[in-house]
Design a binder for these strands. Structure first.
Lengths: 206, 206
DNA sequence: AACTGAATTGAACTTAACTCAGGTTGATCT
DNA sequence: AGATCAACCTGAGTTAAGTTCAATTCAGTT
């Protein structure tokens, strides 16, 4: 459990700008489809300067994924922290999951599209560190959801079922949206949020 | 709607062997992580021979995805064709979705992990043909599920809801399993199948 | 002004996908 | 059997994109 220390930003560091540009590129065109050099162009630096901040294109991707996972976890905790009623907590958690900016939508998309990266180990040190951190955060987020279900089951608000499996399924249902959702598409996020909220409650509580 | 004609197998064609080896490699190590030349080795031919059968590594991937989508659709139709009761049809469809061989698990995993490829257009003719065919099949499969729901709603077996959105969600829930399921893992597929079957019924019918 | 470390760069290197020009194999026909 | 033709295969070379490296600039400090 080695925590990753965010490199403190020197005053003229372009790290944040690179991450932001990378999210835009990777999220819209896809990771493989975007040239690493294009990200550099957008930020306004030469491609080699990227390596001052990230060990590789993949290292940047893994960093984006970890940050998004941290964000998801934080939001979950924030949204459910003082809601006692299990059903209401579940509803709040789902709503929080869809209460996101367009930029965050891209981050979720990137995360979902590259989950498979978290399986195999990486060659380089820093990449592997990010991978392991992200993998752990996936488990943390899964635990967030299963704990919510366990609590509800023990209180008698939810029927008893395999909380681990059901929690993972609820999470899978919620994030599956990010594979197809587009802010420009026909379905507003609010509508999706409501439908999924209802679906989750029925899945878990009936 | 131009259908793809499967190249008829000459007696010494290695196409099937290549597809099979590619499914193993792409499914276990991941598409990006496996070298195209490794697939050639497994089949027992030089790397350049691959290009006799596929225009590119990606063309092979897209073909695998299309074939898997065709299989999924066929299984759905087969499983539901003479079940009138909507709830039973839904149950049958879910069970069929998880009634798969280990090789098919890999194909599902590959499909899920590279759905994003179907968004952007491809440079070369044959790749683009496969992509378009796959994209269409995604819609066909989505329609399979929404139709099932529409039928159930009109018969009064399911409460009225946005069938398109709900159908997509059910499908999303079902396929989300392939991102983490491993035949060697602790949870048998039968158990997953049962839990998801129940969850889907509750989502849709209550 | 000299010093320091962060930030940046152009040129060279590496790897893996891909192309090409030609060679081999084997089924089929006369 | 021998000729033929298409399917099948290969070694050598090309290309594109990620990456490395040695050298340079820049901003703030002593």
């Amino acid at each position: 459990m080695t925590r990753i220390v965010e490199p403190e930003a020197g005053p003229r560091s372009k790290r944040a700008a690179i991450l932001s540009a990378a999210v835009d590129c990777f999220g819209e065109a896809g990771f493989e489809a975007t040239k690493w050099s294009t990200v550099a162009e957008r930020v306004g630096i030469g491609q080699t300067a990227l390596y001052h901040y990230f060990e590789s294109k993949t290292h940047c991707l893994l960093t984006i994924m970890r940050l998004e996972l941290e964000r998801s976890h934080d939001r979950f905790v924030e949204a459910t922290k003082d809601v006692e009623d299990p059903v209401e907590a579940l509803r709040a958690a789902v709503r929080a999951a869809y209460d996101v900016s367009p930029h965050e939508v891209l981050q979720m998309r990137i995360l979902q599209n590259h989950m498979d990266l978290l399986s195999g180990t990486r060659r380089s040190k820093r990449e592997e560190a990010e991978r392991v951190a992200a993998r752990q955060l996936v488990q943390v987020v899964e635990r967030d959801w299963t704990n919510l279900l366990v609590k509800g089951m023990s209180q008698g608000a939810f029927p008893l079922r395999d909380a681990q499996l059901l929690g993972g399924s609820v999470l899978g249902l919620i994030v599956s949206v990010w594979r197809w959702y587009r802010p420009s598409g026909p379905t507003p996020l609010s509508e999706i949020s409501e439908l999924i909220e209802g679906a989750c409650v029925r899945m878990v509580a009936s």
